[in-house]
Amino acid sequence: MGLVESGKIGGGLQSLLNMSRKYSMWVYQWGLACCAIEMGAAFASPRYDVMRLGVIPLPASPRQADLLVVSGTVTDKMAPSVKRLYEQMPEPKYVISMGSCANCGGPYWDSYSVTKGVDQVVPVDVYVPGCPPRPDALLEGIVLLQERIQNEDMAERWKGEPIVID
């Protein structure tokens, strides 16, 4: 039994570890549709630079990432790939659902081939609304996620059960 999973680390150490985790996230960008361009603008353009928040958008492989940003419409044909790649990410992992299509199906709510929201396939931590959300909105979503990480209980996370934050 390690220190973390038995809950023996104190509050100060826990918040220090959380702070270091939240400022060193590697993002696996799942850019599917129009939101991918806004996500690209948030990550690659020097104006809405995301690296100043400590989030590095570089990994091309899910095995090195701990944040997944699903941006764009998820279709029924694509949904198994999302699930498979989500499972390839190592714990602890977080998911941001960006844009209305990923949140709930969006403007294609009545289509025969669109999954109505990516939360039917993977568990989502932060929803960023918009069609497409401005890059600033995505940055705010990341900041909210960072706040959530700061207040997390690492022992609960280690056990692997669903996290419920009041």
Binding site: D76, K77, G105, W109, D110, S111, Y112, S113, K116
Partner: peptide
């Protein structure tokens, strides 16, 4: 071409309903 292999029916026919509606 577009539809997954398990898809049943022909979507653009007028008698194919949009179930969400």
């Amino acid at each position: 071409l577009y539809l997954p292999s398990e898809f049943e029916g022909h979507p653009l026919r007028k008698d194919y309903p949009l179930l969400a509606r």
